[in-house]
Computed example of a mutant assay.
Amino acid sequence: MSSSNAVKESAKKLVNLLEKYPKDRIPHLVSFKDIQIARFGRVAGLPNVDHEGNSIKQKKPSIDEIKSIINRTSGPLGLNKEMLTKIQNKIIDEKFTEESINEQFRALSCIMNNKFRNYYDVGDKLYKPAGNPHYYQRLIDAVDGKKKENLLTAMRTVLFGK
């Protein structure tokens, strides 16, 4: 197996594991899972797909659009050469090896299996402190949207710590 095929196979294996990665509990503008799937999907040679599994086709410019861009600009896309070199120097050229992708695969599988959470298990003494035993459960309920505090219960919590 050549090195490029080994890199592609390792990237496919990593993308399969990333697809099993749980969805973010709090929606963000950018999702770790989606970004990493797109990043390693390119390395694996997989087609671009959206979060629903539909193929994303990139629109290629027509000949007329390309001619219009060339005629409107004095330099390449209107940028001077110094700016283009600065941009090219800042662009990260990712060169993946089979070893680096397998290392990322092992790290992601450790995260998904809660290896370090189980290895460095802390007891109830930390999760339920004596002064306020329901503190962390209230935080988790607020993040999940299960239980919302109104103004009066929030004031009581602030004043009395319960």
Score class of each variant (00 low, 15 high):
D64G: 06
I66E: 06
S109T: 09
S68N: 06
R106A: 08
S55Q: 15
P76L: 15
I70Q: 11
K90Q: 11
M112S: 06
E94W: 15
P76K: 14
I87K: 04
K60S: 05
I63V: 12
K86L: 10
I111E: 15
N102S: 04
C110W: 01
L77Q: 07
K115M: 09
T85N: 07
A107M: 14
D93L: 11
K86C: 02
E82M: 02
E99M: 05
E52K: 09
D64A: 14
L84D: 09
K95R: 10
E65S: 09
E52Q: 04
L77G: 01
S74V: 08
C110F: 03
K95H: 12
I101P: 05
I111P: 11
C110S: 05
K67Q: 13
E94V: 15
S55H: 15
Q88C: 08
D93E: 13
L79Q: 04
I101T: 00
F96T: 04
S100R: 07
L77I: 07
Q58L: 06
I111R: 14
C110T: 05
I91F: 10
G78N: 01
S55K: 15
T97H: 01
I111G: 11
E98R: 00
R72N: 10
K115F: 09
L108T: 00
L84Q: 13
K115G: 02
I111K: 13
N71Q: 12
P76F: 15
G53A: 03
N54I: 03
L77E: 09
K81H: 06
K57S: 08
E98V: 00
R106L: 03
I111L: 13
S100N: 12
D64L: 14
E98M: 00
G78P: 00
T73V: 02
K57G: 03
S62L: 10
N80Q: 07
L84F: 11
K115L: 12
K59R: 15
K90V: 04
Q58E: 03
S55N: 14
P61E: 11
P76R: 14
K95Q: 13
S55T: 15
M83Q: 12
F96A: 02
P61C: 10
L84P: 04
E98K: 00
F116N: 13
L79A: 06
E65R: 08
M112V: 07
